[in-house]
Design a protein around this nucleic acid. Sequence first.
DNA 1: GACATTATGTTACACTATAACAACTTTTTC
DNA 2: GAAAAAGTTGTTATAGTGTAACATAATGTC
Lengths: 167, 167
Amino acid sequence: MSHSRDTDAFSPHDHRRCIRTAIAEAERICLEHNSRLTPQRQAVLELIWSSHKPVGAYALLEQLRELGHNGQPPTVYRALDFLLQHGLIHRIESLNAYTGCRHPGEHHTGQFLICSQCQQVAELDDPSLGSRIEDSAARHGFVADSQVIEIRGTCPQCQQQDSHEPR
Amino acid sequence: MSHSRDTDAFSPHDHRRCIRTAIAEAERICLEHNSRLTPQRQAVLELIWSSHKPVGAYALLEQLRELGHNGQPPTVYRALDFLLQHGLIHRIESLNAYTGCRHPGEHHTGQFLICSQCQQVAELDDPSLGSRIEDSAARHGFVADSQVIEIRGTCPQCQQQDSHEPR
DNA sequence: GACATTATGTTACACTATAACAACTTTTTC
DNA sequence: GAAAAAGTTGTTATAGTGTAACATAATGTC
């Protein structure tokens, strides 16, 4: 089975590339919107992209401090708000945590696969699923304008390990 | 368009009936499971069912105190845990709030329509949507075992009011 | 340079949730 | 029916998540 770029999060990959791409895209988008990717915002974005596990705001705060940034909660939350507004990150509601967005710029509603075992998250980004949901809502006279789709389960990698180490 | 029992939450209806049914079902289920629907638990369930707007734990606590119950946070959270475990209520992740379950007992994953205007929530409970999502995940080698589906938008009633009072 | 705008610093606090242990009730067992 | 076990509630303290409000600093505009 071939995996799209989206769900490669679960497969071993050159993660530095993820980070580089994310920053590059962020710069592009900020330029487009005439917004500023300040050092703090970039630092937060990089920290979020340092893995595919969603990070909590206070964990980010901790890491920012280690990097010598000044740190109080509002600092982090402001950066997060900025990144969220520009579609550069997503908030995972069921985890109170944040993860990098794979398709910044393109307007899309996040659909997440969350592995209960390794804690990693991949984006599904299946537009037809999105419209299927809209339809479902519309059938009840409901006009949808945003969706929270968070699917918990076991990723391919962890399934393999399970079969190797049963019990 | 005809609405199923599920999404009637948005339409005017005899709400006392909702509550009565909910309690009756709760009693049935607790009997089945040999669990006890204690006065506190029942009080919390009734409070949750007192409307179709999800309620936060601390709001419940407040209301419990007004009813003369003893109240500290753990009291409420324990009742909520019990009700959640028995499938009598759902937690709305994106609101940190709780709402009554329309199909207690039947194992189902919650799908919620949340009106941004009136704050009311209806359950979709579209099993084919659930399996559609499972499929979507499976296509990426991911085994889903639970889903968080929360759709924000405008309910039929609020749409009507909008068209009557534009601006 | 003066001004408006945007971003950050700082303090304090609100909201959501749980840990840990004590006391009490109900059920079970003998 | 008394003792033990299991389940429920009381109580105190604290952890985790998020924001309000106001001061200061940096940046952009004219």
